[in-house]
Design a protein around this nucleic acid. Structure first.
Length: 489
DNA sequence: TGAAATGTTGGGGCG
DNA sequence: ACGCCCCAACATTTC
């Protein structure tokens, strides 16, 4: 009886372009797929409730796909190291394949596992795949890591992107399957209360859903992506953006697949090339985030630009907690911000432009530390990704790599008027002010009283007054940022 | 992948 | 006819 190879699945819940699976399967011996839910290893960054919701359906979808090949995935909870060693010894496994993952805790886990397995004479093969290039590979001419996005992008596009591997057409069956949990055991989806209605409406987790999303993006949205990506219009519908982020995060599709598909489409149809150029740049931002967290493992906790360590954030207080809560619940009194936070709460996702506006508001108008926003996003986002989340929060608040300058403070009114000119987005997510005409949809507090009376809207009662005055908040933020000038970089 | 303040220009109304 | 003022519209700079 041949002993099987274990393919330890992590954020690579797919069959196509899965290098670990592909290489293991080439060996011609039975392949045992294993997923371990290990909250301990992830520590602070254990999956949030929304990610867990996604995970449930992503695994379910994977199971369905595997069943078509007569296979399945073993589910276990607990310490990854213990589980893998237990199963390996039980079945006499000599070789394990997995995808490399680059979160600091995941790298640590990989290292520990590697050592432990060595003691038992078991080999751990970590394959690349979740990124276009292994972080650490791209560096400047003098061998340093990139601090700025544009040169990083140049280096990235100058390098060949690997060709995706096909999904295996058959897997050797393994009959002596070890004990497995069921998805139900893990209680990943909410029962009472069931808060996931909006998520179900918005998403189809899993590899099939990911491929559908990519295809519909390439067909329907890519041509105008460079223009429409900044406009958060239609809720739930195929948006002007790709909405691939959660699929990419869970590895239901790889950036390499997206990259080549976009390149191919642009070559076939030149009218799509301008939009697709921008799409590729967005994939590169994702890479850049991983590049940053690879070289700065404290990125989720500490400002990249160290002079921000002593930045005068608003100290914890009752006022600050109240403001944070208003922001989280979408009750700041600024329609575009409230719409964004409510979209996040309902669907587990927020449009990119709105993420920037909302993050700028939290860190600059409210002077609340970016980590607080990061934590909220971590728990609410279906695409919660340690690298992107921390790099982006730092970017917005001015302390990140190649960050937005500190004085770039979004005016939530102007941003709303610019990118949600007809108020479609705001009206959907903030229905209590939906009847207000366009002219005042982003400034309901300026709407003439007789109109508000007509619509039965009471600003300060049925919809909040702005929790801070824009001008005052802006001046306060600029003042707070003043000290950075005198500090050495 | 800003916004606001400040500076400049040029057309039109007007004496 | 001409200068003056007003103020968009656009450009520059400052935060």
């Amino acid at each position: 009886m041949t002993e099987p190879i274990i393919v330890w699945l992590r954020n690579d819940l797919r069959l196509s372009d899965n290098l670990a699976l592909y290489q293991a399967n080439k060996k011609g011996v039975p392949v045992l797929l294993l997923y371990v839910l290990d909250d301990e290893a992830a520590g602070t960054w254990r999956m949030g409730s929304t990610s867990r919701w996604w995970l449930h359906y992503s695994l379910e979808s994977l199971k369905t796909d595997l069943q078509k090949l007569g296979s399945d995935v073993i589910l276990r909870r607990g310490s990854t190291v213990d589980v893998i060693i237990e199963i390996s010894r039980q079945l006499g496994v000599k070789e394990i394949y997995c995808s490399k993952q680059f979160e600091p805790w995941a790298r640590e886990l990989e290292q520990i596992l590697h050592q432990k397995l060595e003691e038992y004479g078991i080999t751990l093969n970590c394959c690349a795949g979740q990124l276009l290039h292994a972080p650490g590979k791209l560096c400047t001419k003098i061998g340093k890591s990139f601090q700025v996005y544009t040169p990083f992008l140049r280096a990235l596009t100058a390098t060949d992107i690997r060709i995706p591997k096909p999904a295996p057409s058959n897997l050797l069956k393994f009959t002596r399957l070890p004990q497995s949990d069921t998805l139900k055991d893990w209680c990943l989806i909410p029962i009472a209360p069931d808060w996931a209605g909006g998520m179900r409406k918005a998403w189809q987790p899993g590899e099939t859903g990911a491929q559908k999303r990519l295809n519909s993006f390439l067909e329907k949205s890519a041509a105008t992506y460079h223009i429409n990506r900044d406009r958060p219009k239609q809720p739930y519908c195929t948006a002007s953006t790709s909405k691939l982020s959660p699929h990419l995060h869970f590895g239901e599709i790889t950036p390499a697949i997206c990259w080549h598909a976009a390149k191919l489409k642009a070559a076939q149809d030149p009218t799509h090339s301008e939009g697709l150029e921008i799409f590729l740049k967005e994939l590169a931002w994702r890479e850049f985030s991983y590049h940053l967290i690879y070289h700065s493992t404290d990125l989720p906790a500490e400002p990249f630009r160290k002079r921000f360590v002593s930045f005068p954030w608003q100290p914890p207080s009752k006022v600050r907690s109240t403001q944070l809560k208003a922001w989280q619940q979408g009750k700041t009194g600024y329609p575009i911000i409230d719409a964004g936070l409510r979209e996040l709460w309902t669907t587990g996702w927020m449009h990119n432009r709105v993420r920037m506006i909302a993050a700028s508001f939290l860190t600059k108008h409210l002077l609340i530390p970016w980590q607080q926003g990061q934590d909220w996003f971590w728990d609410c986002l279906v695409d919660a990704n340690l690298a992107s989340n921390s790099a982006s929060w730092q970017w917005v608040s001015g302390c990140g790599a190649d960050a937005a300058p500190y004085f770039r403070i979004f005016n939530p009114v102007i941003q709303g008027q610019k990118f949600d000119a007809d108020g479609t987005y705001v009206r959907f997510w903030v229905p209590e002010i939906a009847k207000i005409p366009n002219k005042y949809i982003h400034t309901p507090w300026l709407c003439p009283k007789h109109m508000l009376d007509m619509y039965n809207i009471k600003i300060g009662v049925t919809y909040p007054l702005p929790i801070v005055d824009h001008k005052q908040a802006r001046d306060r933020a600029l003042e707070a940022y003043q000290f950075l000038k005198s500090t050495t970089p």
